[in-house]
Design a binder for these strands. Structure first.
Lengths: 187, 187
DNA sequence: ACCGTTAAGGAACGATTGTTCTTGACTAAT
DNA sequence: ATTAGTCAAGAACAATCGTTCCTTAACGGT
């Protein structure tokens, strides 16, 4: 019973994720959220408890609906080259497929334990996907499946996206990613 | 003439850089700066004009005095393995040798053009150093000196540091860096 | 038709934001 | 000793911060 909601909670969370992906947590005010989300202050606090509550919801939504598809795509790739190209290409389709995670990792994770937990989990999930591709390709020698190398590649993917965002030149990261894949693929 | 300063401008800038490296720009208040820097509000504004002015000064100091040494070390390395290990080891000695650049790249560069310029320049300088090491090592095939690969490796270094900060496990990044170097070095 | 409940609307809260003003302390040159 | 110029100390500024309160609107169950 009671008055029905005038907004779609998922839509609001997604819009909040977009905002938090482009500006730091402290750079997004509640006024900004209220303005761009079309939800009134009161409803926002009733639904998410606080600004941080909305942020955490946005981060979890981001991981589940934007990072996970990317992880699946990476895991389904036949080799590293395909994985890297797919990852970077996905960014051209769905801008921000890693951006909130990136922002959370650099800015919030060091000061918010709950964020750190979420970020770590997402990164490890990415690691596993990369590792899957890696073990399928590492057929030249008898090294261990190299989880450390998977972490390195995940870091490289994050770093590439970071650069693309910071320098505002997405084509560069494509070339760099291709070069990285070329050197790691037939290793 | 006039009353002499009661603070060392360089010390203040360095302390500000340390603050801005750990928390986002909007997460560091002028009160925080005044408290931790030992400089009074008035002197701060008289010297740097604004909070943003101090931030830019801190960023430039960081690039010149913390990123540059790292670039030099990378450029002097004999191979990629040595470069990567040196970079990550430098972080254990001088914590934050890349942190402000990292923070600036993800958080300020997208919204502050002057920051973006500074970040781009620093990253390209890192690229050149990596490229130098790369051309000295790439002796197996007749590929171009691979500036794209240099960008990829720079991105990987940044990404590794990002992960170490976000997950608060510095040893992991060492292993990952070593694995990356092992796979790229004897390529 | 009357509740009980939930959401929207908007004003308002105290606290904190970045910045400026005012006053007084200190120093070098006149 | 006076003057001119720079800095420190701290109060104060309007604006914005995250959050809450109060009233009104819209629904389901009795």
């Amino acid at each position: 019973m009671g008055r029905p909601r005038g907004f779609d909670e998922t839509e609001v969370i997604a819009a909040a994720a977009a905002l938090f992906a482009n500006r730091a947590y402290d750079g997004v005010s509640v006024d900004d959220l209220v303005t761009h989300l079309g939800v009134h202050r009161n409803s926002l606090y009733k639904t998410f408890g606080s600004k941080r509550g909305l942020y955490l919801a946005a981060l979890r939504w981001h991981v589940k609906h934007q990072v996970q598809p990317l992880i699946s795509e990476v895991g389904a790739a036949r080799d590293i080259d395909e994985a890297v190209r797919g990852t970077l290409a996905a960014h051209n389709d769905d801008v921000g497929a890693l951006d909130l995670l990136l922002m959370a990792a650099t800015e919030r994770a060091p000061v918010d334990e709950e964020v750190r937990t979420e970020v770590s989990a997402a990164l490890h999930a990415l690691d596993r996907a990369v590792s899957t591709v890696l073990t399928g390709t590492t057929s030249d020698n008898g090294d261990q499946p190299a989880p450390a190398l998977a972490e390195a590649l995940t870091s490289a993917l994050i770093g590439l996206r970071l650069r693309a965002r910071a320098t505002a030149s997405p084509t560069e990261s494509d070339l760099a990613g291709a070069a990285l894949a070329r050197h790691l693929g037939p290793a």
